[in-house]
């Protein structure tokens, strides 16, 4: 592993590399829109082109590609050549994963570093520690797209019951930290409804949807103006083909103009009311109820139109054109039906 504290010696000045002919990137042309490379980067990539040309795959290639990757983690050709070299020289992959851990933490937004992990994990077949590492990376950025899709790949690819087992408590922890983290909501959907049929959580679809509806309604009650939670509610219903009307009693509590101050009324656990701090009416609830009315057909249409109008003109004016489209569309569809 390169030691960051020592001064970098150019490959051109290393005697053990004197047999390699470096190849400059551009010969015979003055490129348009060139990048002003640092001397270290130019040197390393010139030697890399030299290595690729001869096809050498050896231990020192690992050193060279690591230099390039540390300077530019998005250099996919260096990653690719490195992977091929690891396989050809039968290098042990455990230390490579340790190095990749450090590179992942340094550059968590790079496609290549995550894909390299996938290649290594596929070969090593030891996915359990990966979930803990992944959670560590999420601590630094709880919405990193790569980190989440990688976690989902680990679960789907290895599809082992013991991997899935900890996922609901894990994602609940993250949603407790930030109920508006849409990545965590998506992960919850993935775990609850898309967990395959082999490893999975082993529960039936009915059981899953009952649990998930209770969960998401509790989260909506906590902070009603949270698009992530409403999308989850819709997603769960669509996925299990439950009509939106099954949730009307709950959603009605969120279309009123103000929180009901009468806190002493009997608590309906199925339909948790908005928190005292809720800012009502909640536009996602208005939209939801409009959908409920629209689904009733002719009888419901005027009620739906009323709600869409209130979104277009008062509650969600930036999307005025969309709500007007919904009105035209619904009216056209009910009149021909």
């Amino acid at each position: 592993m390169a030691d960051d504290t020592t001064e970098h010696v150019l490959y051109a000045e290393r005697p053990e590399w004197s047999d390699v002919v470096p190849i400059p990137q551009y010969e015979n042309i003055q490129p348009l829109a060139p990048i002003f490379y640092t001397p270290e980067y130019k040197d390393a990539t010139d030697y890399f082109r030299g290595i690729v040309k001869t096809g050498e795959k050896s231990l020192r290639v690992l050193q060279l590609t690591e230099t390039i990757i540390r300077l530019n983690p998005a250099h996919y050709s260096a990653w690719q050549y490195r992977y091929e070299t690891l396989i050809v020289i039968s290098a042990p992959l455990e230390p490579e994963l340790v190095l990749t851990n450090a590179l992942t933490k340094a550059s968590p937004k790079t496609y290549q570093v995550w894909h390299h992990r996938q290649l290594l994990l596929t070969a090593l077949r030891d996915p359990m520690p990966e979930l803990a590492f992944n959670e560590e990376v999420l601590k630094a950025d709880a919405k990193n797209y790569h980190t989440w899709s990688h976690r989902q790949w680990v679960l789907a690819h290895f599809d082992q019951a013991e991997l899935w087992a900890g996922e609901l408590p894990f994602v609940e922890r993250l949603l407790n930290e930030d109920v508006r983290n849409n990545s965590a909501w998506h992960h919850r959907f993935f775990v609850s409804f898309e967990n395959g049929s082999k490893g999975g959580t082993g529960e039936g679809a009915d059981e899953a949807v009952r649990r998930e509806l209770a969960f998401v309604k509790g989260k909506i009650a906590l902070a009603p103006n949270n698009a992530s939670a409403w999308n989850y509610l819709r997603g769960a219903l669509n996925h299990t083909h439950l009509p939106y009307s099954t949730q009307a009693a709950f959603v009605e509590l969120y279309v009123v103009d103000a929180v009901d101050a009468d806190a002493d009324r009997v608590l309906d656990l199925e339909n948790p009311p908005p928190s005292q701090g809720a800012q009502l009416p909640c536009l996602a609830a208005i939209e939801f109820m409009a959908d409920v009315h629209e689904a009733r057909g002719k009888e419901g249409i005027s009620e739906a139109v009323k709600l869409w109008r209130s979104l277009a003109h008062t509650h969600d004016t930036i999307r005025k054109r969309y709500w007007e489209f919904r009105i035209r569309d619904a009216v056209a569809n009910t009149s021909v039906a």
Binding site: E177, D178, V179, R180, N181, A223, N225, S275, Q279
Partner: peptide, 9 residues
Amino acid sequence: PIDAYPTAT
């Protein structure tokens, strides 16, 4: 709206 429930987001 924050619903008197601020989070990182």
